[in-house]
Simulated scan of single mutants.
Amino acid sequence: MTIYSFDLDPVSLSIDLSVGHIAELKIRESQRTLTPLHRASWVDDPNAVFPDGTPPNVKRLSGDFFCAPFGRNDVEEGPSHGWPANSAWDHLETNRQDDRLTASFRLQRLVMGATVEKRITLIAGHPFIYQEHSFFGGAGAISAAHHVMVHMAEGGDLAFSPKQAAQTPPEALETDPERGRSVLAYPAHTENLAAFPLADGGMADLTRYPVGESHEDFLTLLEAPARSLGWSAVSRTAEQDRILVLKRPDLLPVTMLWMSNGGRDYAPWSGSHTGVLGIEDARASPLGHAASCADNDLTCSGIPTAFLLGEGMRITLRQIIGACDQQPGEGPLKDLYEEDSALSLKFQDGRIRALKYDPAFLAG
């Protein structure tokens, strides 16, 4: 394992180069240091025991990682979520120019014949990391996703850019009651995020987390059309902060939510992986690489699920992750929008708060 760390106030960041995961993210605000991303407890446990065949992305489960393909890897030989989430990266260089610092990395393996590079930029005074992943060359088609994970000690509120629907795949993550449990209905579909069907006939409010006790669940949010900014916001109750994840909906038209709240009884999860929410901005089918490259329920609705690779081509995906504290009286978050040099947070009572931000990054 090799950890590469870099820092530009107010952000410090560490990358686990053995798998490309963000090992740690800290954001300093006033007298506080916010730690928005999750790291599985077994990563730092030298006595952790893993079943045979446990992929590296589970053994080193941390922060955020890049999936290519997303989920089942059934076109090109490789582990679930692909080599970018499971194999080593090289640090290429770190450049400091004026008020910006950019660290660059390259995956040691190819993906569908393509070279994959990661660039993460910090900007002085900004409570965000600006990250991009690029494919150079290759052949065929590839699905892709970010895999941001947050932990909530006592749950929290969720807010999203407008979505046209939420849906679960044909089967639950855990179908064997001897191994785990899921509580959502599979398959199910709703346009109302506050009323998603449960397996027992009830309804779950997807704007609150968790939606139940001792469960492992997965669903896909479909971005509303004609939006220039897609976003997810987690307002954590115990931690009293807000975690913000931003994307371009035309490139990453779905956001998948992985709800890991003690619903897996087998190692290394062992019922103790609780309060974790994955926010997975993607161009992918949840059913895997082959399904993403073929006609599926999403493509039939006009939602792309893969990128076409080609000699001499470069495909770049960008995403922003940040955090701020919750200030007294702000109440629930209603909307986010970009301005000249700020990201504005609008609350239900009409109050607006601005964070230092670079809107040109996602537009680039």
Rank of each mutant, 00 (worst) to 15 (best):
I3H: 13
D7Y: 02
P10M: 10
V19E: 02
E29L: 06
T35Q: 15
S41V: 07
V43G: 05
P55D: 07
P55T: 03
V58Y: 08
P69D: 02
D74W: 13
P79A: 03
R96G: 01
Q97A: 14
L110S: 09
V111K: 07
M112K: 14
T121L: 09
E132S: 13
H133T: 09
A141G: 06
E154M: 09
A166P: 01
Q167C: 13
D176T: 03
R181S: 14
V183R: 11
Y186K: 06
H189I: 08
A195K: 08
L198N: 05
A204P: 07
T207E: 07
Y209D: 11
E213C: 04
S214W: 04
L219Q: 04
T237C: 08
E239A: 13
E239C: 04
Q240E: 11
L252C: 07
M256V: 06
M256E: 14
N261H: 15
T274L: 12
V276W: 09
I279L: 15
E280T: 01
H289A: 15
S292F: 03
C293S: 10
C293R: 06
I303C: 12
P304L: 05
L308M: 11
L308Q: 14
L308G: 10
M313G: 00
Q319L: 11
I321Y: 00
I321D: 00
G322V: 10
Y337D: 13
S341R: 13
A342I: 01
Q348M: 11
R351W: 07
L355Q: 03
L355T: 02
A360Q: 13
F361G: 02
A363D: 09
